[in-house]
Simulated scan of single mutants.
Amino acid sequence: MALIIETEQGTFTGYLALPKGPPRGLVVVTQEIYGVNREVRRVADWLAAAGYAAVAPDLLWRVAPELDFGYADRDNARQAIGKLQPERIVSDIAAAAHALRAHVPQGSNLGLALLALGWGGLYAYQAAGLSQASAIVSYYPGNLPNGIDIAKSIGIPQQIHLAFHDERTKPEFRRSLREALAGLDDAEVLVYPDADHGFANRDRQEFHAESARLADDRTLDFLVRTLQHADAPA
């Protein structure tokens, strides 16, 4: 199912997955560089099965609608994201959050989380305020090393899943991130010792079943903990 998302520059869509009953919360899923592909849609469907209304916005629509790159086509995917303006990515994430609230009955009364996959990580952090998010989860955010200060000051619960063997999030970054978040309420930096970048993605060769299962269980626990009594936007 597609959710129509409106911006001042145009209209785009997001993949919408809804639970069978009333949702316990809302989640915006931000994609890796490859588009809203089968794996991103699986994540949205998984969240819906757990009771959340989820949308995965097409963050590449300003290049071309519904782009979907194979994992072997990383160069072209990187070319595509290179054409995007960071501030537009952030505003599109926020627009998706507002559209999801408007679409779901009683959505304005529910807490909303951002769940970022890879490339979507830093932009989700930058969009948290505009999205009026109550929590943020990030899986192997390769661009977050440029946003430690944002993570430190974001002011909402956060859970970050990192892979020990990921060259994008080296040990010195993990150490700096932990130091920056030390003492904050409900801020978790979780490192998976046998995993590499993309370890929770069922369609990537880096998929590591044990780490993915643990990360996903932790994510659902985190969403229950942080969204169950989250304050709705004023």
Rank of each mutant, 00 (worst) to 15 (best):
M1I: 04
M1W: 13
I5M: 12
E6W: 08
T7C: 11
T7Q: 09
E8N: 04
E8Q: 07
Q9G: 03
T11H: 12
F12R: 05
G14A: 09
P19N: 15
P22G: 14
L26T: 05
L26F: 10
L26R: 01
T30S: 15
Y34A: 13
G35T: 04
E39T: 06
V40G: 02
R41M: 15
D45F: 14
W46S: 11
W46H: 13
D58G: 07
L60E: 14
E66Q: 11
L67S: 00
D68S: 12
F69M: 10
R74N: 11
Q79W: 14
A80K: 06
A80F: 14
A80W: 13
P86T: 12
E87K: 04
R88H: 14
R88Y: 14
I89L: 13
S91F: 09
D92V: 09
I93M: 06
A95I: 04
R101V: 07
V104T: 07
A124P: 00
Y125L: 15
Q126Y: 09
A127W: 12
A127F: 12
A127M: 05
S131P: 00
S131Y: 13
S131F: 08
A133P: 00
A133R: 02
A133L: 09
S134M: 11
S134H: 05
I136D: 07
I136T: 03
Y139I: 08
P141Y: 01
N143K: 10
L144S: 13
L144G: 02
P145N: 12
P145Q: 10
A151H: 02
K152Y: 09
P157T: 15
Q159W: 14
H165Q: 11
R168K: 10
T169V: 14
S176H: 01
L177D: 02
L177I: 02
L177A: 06
E179Y: 01
L181S: 01
A182G: 03
G183E: 05
D186T: 03
A187V: 04
V189Q: 01
L190F: 02
L190I: 12
D196C: 05
H197R: 11
R202T: 13
R202E: 15
D203G: 11
A209Y: 11
R218P: 00
D221L: 07
D221Q: 06
D221P: 00
F222S: 03
L223D: 06
R225D: 09
T226Q: 10
Q228W: 09
D231N: 05
P233R: 09
P233D: 13
